[in-house]
């Protein structure tokens, strides 16, 4: 049994400028203790996928058009509000790029850390404070006994990220959703935070969904990766397989365009054009307009995520037909 099963999720935004199909038929499953990376360029629907699961889509303009997100037997998209509240923020936690998304600038860290424990009735105030202190120590805040009484602005950027992680993990969630938590950080601080998430994931055995646009970041952290483009999943595989034998033309192009550590002089591989306009219905493969291998058929039929080998699925028509 999977811990989380998302099936045919569609989340659209109904705006004055049209309907944006931000997430358009996303399905995936996640096992207990598994780490899943979701990779894609900005606007590909990574955040909206996770916001839908967490009930964070502003409605309106957003609307979940279809689909289900079943967490340990409960459909988060359709269950009663109190059922959802018992799961979100307790058994599933989320962290963000900007820690101030989760932190209240006017409250001491101590109050914010114990809040989820008190709300969910998981501990007395005294026990909660003890656990908050332990948690701060676990995320590597020195002098935690003193700093637990600080306000968020009294911490540096990297330290605030740690506080947010402490707050997300204090209820010992079974699933942590991390939405680009290291994107705004310096590489040296990013390395610290990745190390921390990796260590806590192993210690607590929780499942992690890690959203990033950086293929480098997922390579060391995730068991499995899924690549999103234009609101859909175009490829999913174990991390090793995805890096060794990427199949979908978009994944391949993305991998080839990473500039890191390429020597001077060679022309970098580039993907021509831009991501699709999600307010226009996309017929066929969303990548067709930029794909070097596209044929007329690619814009005709809707692509289906097809399993090519156990655990490795991709959505290119031509790859599925054995032409690429």
């Amino acid at each position: 049994m999977s811990l989380l099963t998302v099936n045919d999720l569609r989340t659209y935004f109904h705006t004055r400028n049209g309907v944006y199909r931000a997430v358009d038929g996303v399905s995936f499953a996640l096992d207990r203790g598994e780490t899943l990376g979701i990779v894609g360029e900005s606007g590909s629907g990574k955040s909206v996928t996770c916001y839908s699961i967490m009930g964070l889509i502003p409605q309106p303009p957003g609307r979940i058009e279809s689909g289900s997100a079943i967490f340990d037997g409960t459909d988060l998209l359709r269950c009663r509000p109190e059922e959802a509240r018992a799961i979100r923020g307790k058994r599933i936690s989320m962290i963000f790029q900007d820690p101030m998304t989760s932190l209240n600038p006017y409250l001491r860290i101590s109050e914010q850390l114990i809040e989820p424990l008190l709300i969910h009735g998981l501990a007395s105030r005294k026990d909660a404070l003890r656990r908050a202190l332990e948690m701060l120590e676990a995320v590597g805040i020195n002098d935690a006994a003193k700093r637990i009484h600080y306000y968020p602005h009294e911490f540096s950027g990297g330290m605030r990220q740690r506080v947010m992680i402490a707050m997300a993990l204090i209820t010992r969630p079974e699933l942590l959703i991390a939405d680009e938590p290291t994107t705004a950080l310096d590489v040296t601080v990013q390395a610290q935070i990745l190390e921390l998430i990796r260590r806590l994931q192993q210690e607590y055995g929780m499942a992690v969904i890690f959203i990033t646009h950086d293929l480098g970041v997922v390579s060391g952290l995730c068991d499995r990766v899924q690549v999103m483009y234009g609101g859909r999943i175009v490829e999913t595989a174990s991390t090793r397989t995805l890096f060794r034998t990427p199949l979908h033309p978009y994944t391949r192009a993305l991998q080839q365009s990473i500039p890191s550590l390429q020597p001077k002089g060679v022309e970098l591989f580039t993907i021509p054009g831009m991501p699709p306009d999600l307010s226009k219905p996309i017929s066929g493969c969303a990548f067709a307009a930029r794909c070097a291998a596209a044929t007329a058929r690619c814009t005709g039929a809707d692509p289906v995520l097809t399993e090519m080998s156990p655990g490795h699925a991709q959505a290119c028509l031509r790859v599925a037909a054995g032409e690429l």
Partner: peptide, 27 residues
């Protein structure tokens, strides 16, 4: 050395087996 070491490599083999220099603290 620490800056070079902190760059995440887009290669799971390299990434999992290397010894990363993690600098303590913020600048």
């Amino acid at each position: 050395r620490a800056l070079v070491s902190a760059i995440p490599r887009p290669d799971p083999e390299v990434e999992r087996n290397r010894q990363r220099i993690v600098l303590p603290g913020d600048p």
